[in-house]
Write a protein that binds this DNA or RNA. Structure first.
Lengths: 192, 192
DNA sequence: CTCGATTGTCTAGCGGTGCTAGGATCGAAT
DNA sequence: ATTCGATCCTAGCACCGCTAGACAATCGAG
C-alpha cells in the first residue's frame, strides 16, 4: 500500500506545483504568457502531463482562482476582526479587498476576469468562493442598514469594489486618488 | 483628383465595414470568434487588407470601443435629459448605463474589458471616451453633494456601475435582482 | 525469476491563431 | 502602348491548446 500512497502523494505534489507555477508565471509575465508549453517546461514535464491533472488551461486558471479566493477570505476576516464598529469594519474590508487585488493582480484576474470554468452565485459554487463572499457578508450586516437585505447590500458593496479594482488596474482610473475613491464609496454605502 | 477622391472614399467605406463586421461578429458569437481570418472572409477580402487599415486586431477592438463610447455618451445624455432632479438623473444614468452594457455586451467588453490599445484618464484620451465620461460628470454634480469633488464622485459612480455590469453579465451575481441592486446603489451614492 | 499487463510519460502532430514577406495583377499616367 | 506604382492575394512563419500513439518503466502472477 505504501507504494501507492507515495505515488498519490507525489501526484498531489505535482498538481500543487502546476498551480503554483501557473500562478507565479501569471504574476510575473501576465496570463498571456502562461501557455501550456511554457508551463510544462517550468515544471520540467511534457505538456500532456498537464492534461492528466486538469482538463485544460481553463481548469488550471480555476485552480489558481480557488487558491486566491481562499486567501482572500482569510485576509478579509482578519481585516474585519481588527476593526471596531460596523463602519470601520466596512472600511477595513474595502481596503483589504483592494489591497489583495493590487498585490495579486493575476490571481484576481483568475477569480473575476478570466474564465476558470467556475460557477458563481449558485448552490454548487465551490466552497472557497462562497467563503470569500461570506467573509464580506458576515461583517456587513449592520452597515447595510435597517430593512436592507444584507445579501443584496453585500453584492452591491462587492461589485463596487470590483469596479474600482478593475478600472484602476486597467489604467481606466487615475491611480493617485484610489484611496480617496475608496473612502468616498464606503462613506456613502455604509449607513451606520 | 476625382479618381483619388473616389479611392479614398472607398477606402473609408471599407474601414467602416471592417469595424461594423467585427462588432457584428463579436455580438453574435463573442470576441473569441472574431479572428482575422473570419473577419477577412466576411468582408470578402484577404487577411492582409485588415492590416492596411489597422495595426492589428487590438486596434480593431479599439475602433469598436470608440464607436460604442460615442453611442453610450448619446444615450446617457438623453437619459439624464428625460429625468427631473439630481437624484432621478442619477438613477436614469445608472439604468441607461447598465442597459447599454446589457444590450451590447461585446461592445462593452471592447470598451472596458479587452485591450483595445486605448489610453484612459489621460490628456490624450480619445474624445469619445472623454465624452462618455463627461456625460456622467455633467449630470452628477449635484448628486455628488457639497464638498465632494464631482470628478471623484463620478469615478466612483462609474466604477460601481461597471462592477455591477461585469459581475452580473459574467454570472457572478444573480441576474434576477439586478434592478434592486442598481436601486440600492443609486440610493446610497446620491446624497440629494 | 520471468514475463505479460498496466501505468506513466514523451514525441510528434493536428487544426487553429495573429501577423507578414514577396509576388502577381491591375489601373493610371505618360 | 507602355511603363510604373499602388493594391491585393498566396503562402508561410511562429506560436497556441490539445491529443494520438509509441515507448519505457513498473507491477503482479505463475
Amino acid at each position: 500500500m505504501s507504494v501507492q500512497e507515495r505515488k498519490e502523494r507525489e501526484r498531489a505534489d505535482r498538481e500543487r506545483l502546476i498551480v503554483a507555477t501557473a500562478r507565479e508565471l501569471a504574476e510575473q509575465q501576465g496570463w498571456d504568457a502562461v501557455t501550456t508549453r511554457r508551463l510544462a517546461e517550468r515544471i520540467e514535464y511534457s505538456q500532456p502531463v498537464l492534461y492528466s491533472h486538469f482538463r485544460g488551461k481553463r481548469e488550471i486558471i480555476g485552480a489558481v482562482a480557488l487558491e486566491g479566493a481562499a486567501e482572500m477570505a482569510v485576509e478579509l476576516r482578519a481585516a474585519a476582526l481588527a476593526a471596531d464598529g460596523p463602519r470601520a469594519q466596512a472600511a477595513a474590508l474595502a481596503r483589504a479587498y483592494l489591497d489583495v487585488a493590487t498585490r495579486n493582480p493575476a490571481v484576481y484576474d483568475a477569480m473575476f476576469q478570466l474564465d476558470g470554468g467556475l460557477t458563481f452565485a449558485h448552490e454548487d459554487t465551490p466552497a472557497p468562493l462562497k467563503d470569500a463572499f461570506a467573509a464580506l457578508l458576515d461583517n456587513l450586516g449592520e452597515a447595510a442598514g435597517e430593512g436592507v437585505h444584507p445579501g443584496l447590500f453585500t453584492e452591491v458593496f462587492w461589485a463596487s469594489l470590483h469596479g474600482l479594482a478593475t478600472l484602476t488596474r486597467a489604467g481606466r482610473l487615475p491611480p493617485a486618488e484610489a484611496d480617496r475613491r475608496t473612502e468616498l464609496l464606503v462613506d456613502r454605502l455604509a449607513v451606520v
